[in-house]
Simulated scan of single mutants.
Amino acid sequence: MKTRKGYLMGLGALATIAAILVSADHIDAPSSAGTSADIADFYAFEPSEGSDNTVFVVDLQSNVLPDLAYGTFDEDVLTEINIDLDGDLVEDQVIQAIAKDGRMYFFGPVAPSQTGLNSSVYTEAALGDVEISGATAMVETTSDGVSLFAGPRQDPFFFDFFQFNAVISPELDSAPGGFLPPDEAADTFDGANTMSIVVEIPNSMLGTPTATNALGLSVYKTWVTTNRKQ
């Protein structure tokens, strides 16, 4: 507990003195490739039909191959889940995650004091923390009913990368049959992991969703950013 308190105090100093962070995009920013600033996938969904909770899954660092199965989270990178509640495509609530000494610390949901590319760590809105998983998945559930996870997960992306390269090759006859049928295709990323951050949270803590999806269901407009300390 003393270590956790000391870390939160340290983050408080960071937020007030030097917590200007610059966001990075997956693939678009070469400096983020191969690190946990590199966003691979982002999912938001109900854990079951009619649930009053929402699950957010952020997959980072998509090239964690089997021989590097348990990667690490960069302690200088803040992952931020952004939630728009009024349809203006500006974040009204954020949930933040940042790693320190083998644990992932979560903050929010909180209305950000600044929006867009820059952010600060909102230490006054501590949500909880969880040990970063290795071979065994570790999940922490708070007294507010929030479940937290951070660690490696199987890459959900099924993709025959080598056949894709053959199809788009400038040599038109390199893949005359096009893409392979499912029973012949190879999943190039089978066995590879991503570094994942998962938050399951009651909707009552987020606010009322104002968007409607193609199925006519009420949903949150949400996106994720990674921000590196400068």
Rank of each mutant, 00 (worst) to 15 (best):
Q230L: 12
A111K: 13
Q230S: 10
P47K: 06
A13M: 12
N213A: 03
E124W: 09
A126K: 12
S147K: 14
Q61M: 14
A29T: 10
A137Y: 04
T16D: 01
T225I: 13
S196R: 15
V139T: 11
S120N: 11
V121L: 10
D52H: 13
G71F: 08
G178E: 06
E171I: 14
Q230D: 06
K229V: 15
D41Y: 14
Q96G: 09
N53M: 10
V77G: 01
A69E: 09
I17H: 08
G116H: 03
I98A: 00
V22P: 00
S174T: 08
R153K: 10
A186C: 12
P30F: 07
F149I: 06
D187Y: 13
A44I: 11
F158N: 05
L14S: 06
I20W: 15
V224L: 02
A13K: 09
M138F: 09
D129H: 11
A69P: 07
N213V: 04
V57G: 01
S113H: 12
Y70P: 02
A137L: 08
P182Q: 07
P181Y: 14
F158Q: 11
E49G: 06
T123N: 03
V90G: 02
I201V: 08
G145Q: 03
F45S: 04
A126R: 08
T54C: 05
S23C: 09
G10S: 06
P181D: 11
V64A: 10
N203R: 12
K229P: 11
P152D: 03
T142D: 00
D28Q: 12
E80G: 04
F149N: 00
E75D: 08
I132D: 01
M138A: 11
P170F: 09
G71I: 10
A33S: 11
S31H: 15
L215V: 02
N165L: 15
D41F: 14
V121Y: 12
Q93H: 04
I17Q: 06
V55M: 06
V219G: 02
A111I: 13
L60T: 03
L215A: 09
N213C: 02
I17K: 10
T226Q: 03
G6T: 01
R4V: 13
G151I: 05
A150L: 04
Q114W: 06
E171M: 12
S169T: 07
A137F: 01
M9R: 15
V22I: 15
E46N: 05
G10D: 04
M195V: 01
P209V: 03
P176K: 05
N63M: 12
I98R: 12
F45Y: 09
P170A: 07
T226W: 10
V199E: 01
F42Q: 01
A186W: 11
I168Q: 05
P181V: 12
D92G: 01
T212K: 07
L8P: 04
T35Y: 07
Q163R: 14
T54E: 02
V57C: 05
W223F: 14
